[in-house]
Structure formats: structure tokens, C-alpha cells
Simulated assay, not measured.
Amino acid sequence: MSNSPAVWIVDDDDDDQFLLGLAFRNLNPPVYVKQLYDGEELLAQLEACASLPKLVLLDLNMARKNGFDTLVEIRRLPQYTNLPVIVLTSSTLESDKTLSYSLGANGFLTKPLSDEETVSMLKLLALEWL
């Protein structure tokens, strides 16, 4: 397994970061994660990294740069055209889902309410994207 993270989690909620990171690390095989706290940090890290992540999980509601603005910037840059970005948010609004896809998201998932549902969802994501 590579030393570089396979999944970058972009979410400003510490509890969500902890749960998602723990769930990925507990998969078999474990998935390495990099935790980032907003779109500005994501864009800076993408620019500086030697190899792109296999998957980015992007929250919509973050303080400095939200997920929508971040998606616009990512998809504007040709080097990130094929970077898989899944919106993972607490939003259940159809308008947020539609806008996310129109801005170039590869998927839209609402954060599960239980730890068990989170683990199940991440297993499926790992199977599909990693």
C-alpha cells in the first residue's frame, strides 16, 4: 500500500473527520486518508502534491471556501478534470444535489445518521473508487 493518502476528506467538522477517517482506516485493507478542513486547503494541497488522491470527499458547508465554490475551481483546472470528487454533506436538498452534479461532482451522498451506515457507505465507496 502506498504511503500517500488514497482519500482526501474535506470537511470542517472535527467529529465527521474523526468518524470518516476511523471508518476508512478500519476497512480491510485500510484506506489511507488525508484530512483537510476547507476548499482553500484542498486547492493548496492539490497544487503541492506529487500525486493526486484517488478520491476526494467534499462537504458543502464549510466556513472559508464552501464545496460549491471549491468544485467550480477544481473543474476549471484541466489537471483535475479526472479527479473523482464525491460531495458528502448533511444536505438532503435536491437543489444541492442538482447543483453539485452540474458543477462536476462525480457523486452526491448525504451523511449517514449512524456509525454502521457510515461504515457501509465507505465500504461501497472504496469498492467503487479505490
Results as ranks from 00 to 15, higher is better:
residue 4 S to V: 06
residue 9 I to F: 02
residue 17 Q to L: 15
residue 21 G to R: 12
residue 54 K to V: 09
residue 66 N to H: 03
residue 60 L to E: 04
residue 45 Q to M: 10
residue 11 D to P: 07
residue 117 E to W: 00
residue 100 S to P: 12
residue 55 L to H: 05
residue 49 C to N: 05
residue 7 V to M: 05
residue 119 V to R: 05
residue 19 L to A: 13
residue 115 D to V: 10
residue 4 S to R: 13
residue 78 P to A: 10
residue 77 L to I: 15
residue 82 N to T: 11
residue 37 Y to I: 05
residue 28 N to M: 08
residue 17 Q to G: 07
residue 24 F to G: 07
residue 46 L to W: 12
residue 72 V to I: 15
residue 41 E to M: 14
residue 101 Y to Q: 00
residue 41 E to A: 09
residue 108 F to H: 10
residue 78 P to H: 14
residue 107 G to E: 11
residue 72 V to W: 03
residue 69 D to I: 02
residue 32 Y to P: 02
residue 124 L to G: 09
residue 13 D to Y: 02
residue 89 T to R: 01
residue 103 L to Y: 13
residue 81 T to P: 08
residue 3 N to R: 06
residue 51 S to A: 15
residue 77 L to N: 12
residue 59 D to G: 07
residue 111 K to G: 01
residue 13 D to P: 00
residue 100 S to N: 01
residue 30 P to H: 14
residue 32 Y to E: 15
residue 120 S to V: 12
residue 29 P to F: 13
residue 122 L to W: 02
residue 108 F to S: 06
residue 53 P to A: 07
residue 110 T to K: 01
residue 25 R to E: 15
residue 43 L to P: 10
residue 101 Y to H: 12
residue 50 A to M: 08
residue 53 P to M: 05
residue 38 D to Y: 10
residue 61 N to F: 13
residue 21 G to V: 12
residue 97 K to H: 08
residue 105 A to V: 11
residue 115 D to I: 09
residue 119 V to A: 06
residue 89 T to H: 03
residue 113 L to C: 05
residue 49 C to K: 02
residue 5 P to N: 04
residue 100 S to L: 06
residue 111 K to I: 00
residue 79 Q to Y: 08
residue 29 P to Y: 08
residue 94 E to D: 09
residue 30 P to F: 11
residue 13 D to Q: 01
residue 16 D to V: 08
residue 88 L to S: 02
residue 63 A to G: 06
residue 30 P to V: 15
residue 87 V to E: 07
residue 15 D to I: 06
residue 56 V to W: 09
residue 118 T to Q: 08
residue 93 L to F: 11
residue 102 S to E: 13
residue 11 D to Q: 04
residue 34 K to C: 13
residue 84 P to A: 14
residue 34 K to M: 09
residue 26 N to V: 00
residue 9 I to M: 08
residue 112 P to L: 05
residue 47 E to W: 08
residue 73 E to I: 01
residue 25 R to V: 02
residue 87 V to T: 09
residue 124 L to K: 12
residue 45 Q to G: 11
residue 53 P to Q: 07
residue 41 E to H: 10
residue 42 L to F: 07
residue 121 M to D: 00
residue 125 L to C: 04
residue 68 F to G: 03
residue 84 P to C: 12
residue 50 A to W: 00
residue 116 E to Y: 04
residue 21 G to N: 13
residue 96 D to Q: 12
residue 121 M to E: 09
residue 40 E to Q: 02
residue 108 F to C: 01
residue 82 N to G: 13
residue 89 T to S: 14
residue 81 T to Y: 11
residue 109 L to S: 04
residue 57 L to S: 04
residue 62 M to E: 00
residue 85 V to P: 11
residue 121 M to L: 15
residue 122 L to C: 01
residue 42 L to D: 09
residue 69 D to H: 13
residue 130 L to H: 03
residue 77 L to D: 15
residue 120 S to Q: 12
residue 98 T to V: 14
residue 20 L to T: 14
residue 107 G to M: 02
residue 11 D to I: 08
residue 79 Q to N: 11
residue 9 I to L: 06
residue 103 L to D: 03
residue 123 K to G: 11
residue 127 L to C: 03
residue 103 L to F: 10
residue 16 D to P: 10
residue 96 D to Y: 02
residue 45 Q to I: 08
residue 41 E to S: 14
residue 54 K to R: 14
residue 45 Q to E: 15
residue 129 W to A: 00
residue 130 L to P: 03
residue 39 G to C: 06
residue 82 N to W: 04
residue 104 G to C: 10
